[in-house]
C-alpha cells in the first residue's frame, strides 16, 4: 500500500511521459512468503526529485534495489530511462547511478584517485577526470580527505565520500538511500545542494529518507510507503 503526493498524481494524469526517466507501476516484492514491498507506483521526470518516505521496513530500500536492478520484482513493471533494470544492459548501466549501502572501495587507492579512476572508467580523459574529482571534493568540502585511504575515514566522512563516488560517474538517474546518514547539520546542507544541482542539471533523482529537512528542501514528489506487516 502506498500513497502518492498530489504533484505526482498530476503527472500521471497528464500522461505526458516524454521526459520521464523513472517509472514503476504496481511493483511488489515477495520473498519466501515475506512481503517486502507491495504495489508501489511512481515516476520521476528529468529535473525532478522523487522522495520515498515510510517507516523502517516499509520497502523503501527494496524499491530502490529493484530500480537499480539488484533485486527482481515479483509483480509490476519498472523502467529506468525507458529500459528494464538489468545489470547486463550497458545502456541501463550507463543511465543509473545509485548509493544503496556503502560502495565497494579499493583499499589501496586514495579518495581523489577513486574519483579519478571511476571517471576514467567511464571514458573521461585523465585531465578532465582530475578536474572533476577536485570539483567534487570542493563541492562536498572534503578536499582535505583527498589523499586519505578509505580506512582512514570517520563514519560521517565515509558517507560523504560514498556520495562523492556515486556522483563521480555520469548518470541520468540518481538513486540515494538515506543520504543523510551520520551527517551533521552543515554537511547535510552540502548534500542537499549537491543533489539539487544534479536534478537542476536534468537528472531524475529518487531518494529514500527519514530527514524532515532533506525532504522539505528536496522533494518535488513524495511517495509514502506503508509498513509491511
Amino acid at each position: 500500500m502506498e500513497s502518492m503526493g498530489r504533484d505526482a498524481t498530476l503527472h500521471v494524469e497528464q500522461d505526458d511521459r516524454s521526459d520521464e526517466l523513472v517509472r514503476f507501476e504496481g511493483v511488489g516484492v515477495v520473498s519466501d512468503d515475506n512481503v517486502l514491498l507491495l504495489d508501489a507506483t511512481g515516476a520521476a521526470r528529468a529535473g525532478e526529485i522523487l522522495a520515498l518516505t515510510g517507516a523502517n521496513g516499509s520497502g523503501k530500500t527494496t524499491l530502490l534495489r529493484v530500480m537499480a536492478g539488484l533485486a527482481d520484482p515479483t509483480a509490476g513493471t519498472v523502467r529506468i530511462a525507458g529500459r528494464r533494470p538489468d545489470d547486463r544492459d550497458r545502456i541501463f548501466r550507463a543511465a543509473l547511478a545509485a548509493l544503496i549501502g556503502p560502495p565497494q572501495t579499493a583499499r589501496d587507492l586514495t579518495i581523489v584517485e577513486h574519483l579519478q579512476f571511476i571517471a576514467a572508467t567511464w571514458g573521461i580523459g585523465a585531465k578532465a577526470a582530475r578536474v572533476q574529482a577536485e570539483e567534487l571534493l570542493d563541492e562536498l568540502q572534503i578536499g582535505a580527505l583527498g589523499r586519505r585511504f578509505p580506512h582512514e575515514l570517520s563514519s560521517g566522512q565515509s558517507q560523504l565520500v560514498s556520495l562523492a563516488l556515486t556522483l563521480a560517474r555520469p548518470s541520468r538517474v540518481l538513486l540515494l538511500d538515506e543520504p543523510e546518514q551520520r551527517l551533521d547539520v552543515d554537511r547535510l546542507g552540502l548534500v542537499i545542494d549537491a543533489v539539487r544541482a544534479r536534478a537542476e542539471a536534468g537528472g531524475a533523482v529518487v531518494l529514500a529518507s527519514h530527514s524532515p529537512r532533506l525532504l522539505e528542501e528536496l522533494a518535488d514528489v513524495r511517495l509514502h510507503l506503508e509498513e509491511q506487516r
Binding site: 539488484l70 547511478a97 572508467t121 556515486t166 563521480a168
Partner: peptide
C-alpha cells in the same frame, strides 16, 4: 552485487 560505479562490468 552493488550499484555500478565503474564503467566496466
Amino acid at each position: 552485487g552493488a550499484p555500478q560505479l565503474f564503467g566496466q562490468t
